[in-house]
């Protein structure tokens, strides 16, 4: 589904060029569960941003579902993000003045979905996250774990093919972190591909595939033997 080929991403800082990605080639198939690890500053977030079409690579090609997306226009990129990709961020990024339900409704609104259908879908999504009774709460009235679950409901409401999560538990206590992981693994079980950047080896240990990034390169890419469960 995702095919990266020789992806470079360089930043110009003053008269210095910082190479955040140094020729990354990767292939991620539909429904995969991938943990991305690596030291701070190694390029994990940059990789996720490129995969999520938020950032354009300096060189290399990116095929998403068989289409070359490195040449798309701003408008086409936005539409592709909306239809195929769900983001989960370390800092949740909920709009503070909107209620949980309104935050979850945002992608539907941006996609121009008929308002009469939205309420239902939002209610279902929130209920799926165990937040049915929190629909009218604003983010500042929710705990960290609840906020991240609202964000996940928002990321999945348009049924994306892949969820890109950059340290989704980085800002949560252990228990909430575990809840959040359980929820996104459940999504994975339903067939949504999962790419999770994490420092937590316990979480990484649960993923079937682990990619280690160092200095903008894939240092190791290991697939765990399938254990019978």
């Amino acid at each position: 589904m995702i095919i990266l080929d020789g992806i470079h991403r360089a930043f110009q800082v003053g008269d210095q060029t910082v190479h955040a990605l140094n020729g990354v080639s990767l292939r991620i198939d539909a429904g995969e569960y991938v943990a991305v690890m690596g030291p701070s500053g190694s390029g994990k977030s940059t990789l996720l941003n490129v995969m999520g079409l938020l950032d354009r690579p300096t060189a290399g090609t990116y095929h998403l579902d068989g289409h070359d997306v490195t040449t798309l226009s701003d408008e086409q990129l936005a539409a592709t993000r909306r239809d195929k990709i769900g983001f989960v961020f370390q800092f949740f990024h909920l709009v503070p003045r909107l209620s949980a339900a309104e935050n979850v409704e945002l992608p539907l609104m941006l996609a121009g979905v008929d308002p009469t259908q939205r309420k239902d879908r939002v209610a279902k999504a929130l209920a799926g996250m165990g937040l049915a009774d929190r629909a009218d709460h604003r983010p500042d009235q929710l705990s960290g774990g609840q906020r991240q679950r609202v964000a996940i409901a928002r990321a999945t409401i348009l049924e994306p093919a892949v969820i890109l999560a950059d340290e989704p538990t980085g800002n949560l206590d252990q228990q909430s972190g575990r809840d959040v992981i359980a929820i996104i693994e459940e999504l994975n079980a339903r067939g949504i591909a999962l790419v999770v950047v994490t420092h937590d080896s316990m979480i990484a240990g649960r993923a079937r595939r682990r990619i280690q990034i160092v200095d903008g390169n894939v240092e190791s890419d290991t697939v765990r033997e399938t254990r019978e469960s």
Binding site: L54, A78, R81, R82, H93, L106, A111, L158
Partner: peptide, 16 residues
């Protein structure tokens, strides 16, 4: 700024 970034991540083109 972060709200705008979020809207873009959720699929809003610059036009919106």
């Amino acid at each position: 700024t972060s709200e705008i970034g979020l809207l873009k991540a959720l699929g809003a083109p610059g036009r919106n």
